[in-house]
Amino acid sequence: MNLTELAQGEKAHVRDFSAVSKIVQRRLVQLGVKENEEICLKRKLPFGGPCMIETCGLCISIRLDEAMRIEVRK
């Protein structure tokens, strides 16, 4: 399943995020996102807006289409 399929406030572990576009991927790595790391979907904004995720005690916002490319497992 991908990150956006989680319920709001639900936690999961990152399985694979190599499909995310290169620049965003690099930034995510810098911010501490990596495989097997716990990730929480905090909020999705309306009208297909960006979503807010939390990982390693840090809140990050990315677009919905990028979040869909992050595979997670519960």
Binding site: S21, V24, C59, I60, E66
Partner: peptide, 11 residues
């Protein structure tokens, strides 16, 4: 060119 967005939200 595609538009991108990623942002850290500080406390």
């Amino acid at each position: 060119e595609k538009s991108l967005f990623i942002m850290e939200l500080p406390p």
